[in-house]
């Protein structure tokens, strides 16, 4: 009997602990979502630097505003030739594009998530994550002194990845690093984050995505970040894509 009891205890406790682990992972991702998607709105200057084999190839600058998790507007300011171009991302994957030389904003649909986001190493899939807790199936695989190492398996079968391995900061619950694995489970991209706190919010001051196969990387720098300005919904309309002076 005693033996059986021990046996049952082991079975139950391992069940519980594995449940606990997955629960932990889910909890961690929720906390992470709460940390990085916390602000109700956000404004920043964004600098995008493209590098190949360590050499800078292209620099772009934009002003970004964001409300909630799925409304985002970029207005590009540099280079000169592309200044004034603006994009507006709305819920349900709707995107509007304004190109000054062509006048009217155009709705564009991006049919492929794996496409590179305007020449960067980020794909549209990488750029449109709204919740790591909901869009991935998390499993905690390691618990180090500095980080939780979480395996994230995409729930969508349209994903380009077999899994992501995310290193989550233990104290502040923001990503330190994400490794992207291709469908054959080979590491092929890596994002390294540098999070910073401004007021009560954490934001990625710097993130570098490296495509390991192409030896190509994209660095996104965020400065002059302002949170919770109560940005009005009108800012996120098609009309607002066209600058007011015009």
């Amino acid at each position: 009997m005693k033996f059986l009891r021990i046996f049952i205890y082991i079975i139950v406790s391992t069940g519980i602990s594995s449940y606990a682990i997955s629960q932990d992972a889910k909890e961690i991702m929720k906390k992470l979502d709460d940390t990085i998607f916390a602000a109700s709105d956000k404004q920043a200057r964004v600098k995008i630097i493209l590098e190949k084999k360590g050499e800078t190839q292209k620099v772009r600058e934009a002003e970004m505003i964001q409300k909630g998790i799925d409304k985002k507007r970029y207005r590009y300011t540099y280079p000169e030739s592309q200044a004034g171009i603006a994009t507006l991302s709305l819920p349900d994957g709707i995107m509007w594009l304004y190109m000054p030389a062509f006048g009217k904003p155009k709705k564009i649909s991006l049919l492929a998530k794996s496409q590179a986001f305007t020449g960067t190493d980020f794909s549209y899939e990488d750029m449109t994550v709204n919740s790591y807790a909901n869009e991935y199936k998390p499993t905690l695989i390691e618990n180090t002194n500095n980080a939780y190492v979480v395996k994230l398996v995409p729930r969508s079968d349209k994903s380009n990845y077999s899994k992501l391995i995310m290193y989550v900061n233990r104290t502040n619950f923001h990503p330190e690093k994400i490794e992207y694995y291709d469908k054959k489970d080979r590491l092929y991209k890596e994002a390294v984050y540098n999070y910073k706190k401004a007021g009560k919010y954490w934001y990625a001051e710097e993130v570098t995505m490296t495509d390991l196969r192409k030896n190509h990387s994209t660095m996104i720098l965020m400065t002059e970040v302002i949170f919770d300005q109560k940005l009005p919904d009108e800012e996120f309309t098609v009309e607002k894509l066209v600058p007011e002076e015009k």
Binding site: Q82, A101, T118
Partner: peptide, 18 residues
């Protein structure tokens, strides 16, 4: 397009297409 600006802005979308 006749204007250079238009072509430059089109490249915004084409950049990075393998």
């Amino acid at each position: 397009p006749d204007e250079r600006e238009k072509i430059e802005q089109l490249w915004f979308l084409l950049d990075g297409q393998e």
